[in-house]
Nucleic acid binder design. Sequence first.
DNA 1: AGTAGCATCGACTGACGGTCGATAGAGGTG
DNA 2: CACCTCTATCGACCGTCAGTCGATGCTACT
Lengths: 210, 210
Amino acid sequence: MKTVKEGEIRRREILDVARELFVTKGYDHTSVNDILKIVDIAKGTFYYYFASKEEVLEAIILDIVEEGARRAEIVVKDQSIPLLNRIMMAIMAQAPEFEGSDEIKEELHKVENAKLERLYLKAMLKRMTPVLQEPVLECIKEGIAHMEYPTECIETILLLGHMMFDCDTFEWKMEEYPQKIQAFLCHAERMLGTKEGELNGFLQMFGQIP
Amino acid sequence: MKTVKEGEIRRREILDVARELFVTKGYDHTSVNDILKIVDIAKGTFYYYFASKEEVLEAIILDIVEEGARRAEIVVKDQSIPLLNRIMMAIMAQAPEFEGSDEIKEELHKVENAKLERLYLKAMLKRMTPVLQEPVLECIKEGIAHMEYPTECIETILLLGHMMFDCDTFEWKMEEYPQKIQAFLCHAERMLGTKEGELNGFLQMFGQIP
DNA sequence: AGTAGCATCGACTGACGGTCGATAGAGGTG
DNA sequence: CACCTCTATCGACCGTCAGTCGATGCTACT
């Protein structure tokens, strides 16, 4: 039995199902056959749209990163939020964790998904750094922040936020988080060269991670 | 034809060959058969010593981390080096990169090795943080450094050093490195709360990374 | 009705991780 | 020396998986 659909629609179907599976079962533990069963297509169709399983992964990661970057861009443009807050809120808005997508939350970070994670991180840094460039430079101009290496500072804070809270790099226990978040904010303040305690307001916001 | 060897020797043979292959070809692209061919044993023998290919990987990573930590411990104990320098030198001594083992250098960080890398990072942080605890606390006591979260500061600097220079997270070009290293040292100074420029002496040392 | 070509099918392939029952050899015992 | 025991070793075999390919159904245009 053959169901013919327009190319772009099939492609999206495959992408959506694969994303769901990669994120819930892990990339390695999702077989192409798993995807085929759910989308209800034959193997040939899958490989008609994608050259390999890995190509699907890369496309999905670009999607996730792009979605995050869009959310961040909205925050950055919002003049009603104080400048420094905008930067931190953009970082939080960008992380897939904070979005409703609970699916991603738990599963993105298991060791099995190291490949997914690594590709995500690289793509995210490349996409997000320019987004934060402008507000950070403005912070410097306004004297709220003081630093010699703005680009590197952004890269570093994005990296740290991701490794500490998005992935479970340190395998912290639940009760350690408040302390770790405070430390993170303190380090961010120091790198940005803001007044001490300027970022304190973010403690509660991060509190929702558990 | 059967060659019988004492258990521990066989185990080491497998471990050594596997390490060489994982590091040069990548974990995913090394098959158990590749290992068997070189060690010249049958499959059953391999699985007599290890429950899975992954168990071999974990054992290798523990080895690598332990070797690095030993080098770091020697540096930390060396009273002839100024305290602050000891900390940074220990971090550098620990990284597999800076050791003679060029093999590891290039290959550890390709995306194919994401799993190896991720496991390495977790194990390294767990092993290295306590090593640096003591000298950092002493820095604080002596007034060379000022911080509220010493443990978290160590974790952060270890993580940053690894992600920036050991893995190729940012895919920097050769000519960008001097700037990135300077920025890293600047951020480390700020997080540690030292005098500005205290870490300048490390610029050349890092210079050997290419 | 005819046809061009896009989208779909699914049997097949080769490689890989892992299992298992058989067995060779070393060392001990009488 | 004959017998036994236990450990290290062997390699055929299994199920699974990513990826291939020639055949073919379906659509749209002539």
